[in-house]
Nucleic acid binder design. Sequence first.
DNA 1: ACATCATATCAATATTTTATCATATGTCAA
DNA 2: TTGACATATGATAAAATATTGATATGATGT
Lengths: 112, 112
Amino acid sequence: MQSENNTNVFIFKVLSNEVRLAIIEALLKKPMNVNEICEEINEEQPRVSHELRCLAVCGFVYSEREGKRIIYEPNKDTITPIIEAANKHARIFGSKMRGCEMLSDIRKMTSR
Amino acid sequence: MQSENNTNVFIFKVLSNEVRLAIIEALLKKPMNVNEICEEINEEQPRVSHELRCLAVCGFVYSEREGKRIIYEPNKDTITPIIEAANKHARIFGSKMRGCEMLSDIRKMTSR
DNA sequence: ACATCATATCAATATTTTATCATATGTCAA
DNA sequence: TTGACATATGATAAAATATTGATATGATGT
């Protein structure tokens, strides 16, 4: 339970990045190779490779070589429920957080 | 959908911190005031107050004054599904991530 | 083996987040 | 209104993460 907790912190860390989350969402539409992902989310290739590595180590995506290309697929089983649960919270509290792009933005919100 | 996505990044950021997640887990057991939380998770009061503010702004906890004390409660409705979904991933891939405390640890894992 | 395309790695820097401490604010009770 | 307790705030140093571009590796088909 305690170790599960620490693992959860790490899981959320991995998901708390715009590029990584964009990659996941893109792959949920359809499996792709690095360059297709780059086009889809408009990011540089080294950057996307970097993040794919992270996502792969953490079990969020897996890969399979097809000739020259390496096709990445998301691990729908565990990703989908996490994202949907977050969506639910976002739907209700998204407006409350509007304008927060960084954690430090919260300091600027004086009212509670 | 796009704004939901950005909000999700933020949601995961908030949850990707040991202290904040510990606060949430503690409050899921029972509502508490700041000092009780401090004891439970063994952290300093200013630190916990800081994080409670963050959690409150983001809709993860809400508070109610009871005399001198302010009692904090978690927003079980949306938190529980998120944590459970993460637990599921942790159960399967936790071992793969074992030893990762920081994202930079991933760089040390050379094998894929 | 060579040329080419696809992907990964490295390292330096910029940005963001965490951690800490001193201090302020607020509430109650005498 | 004073004292005691409870909680919040602000500034800042330290640490972690994101970003970037140059370069390296790897696989394929010829």
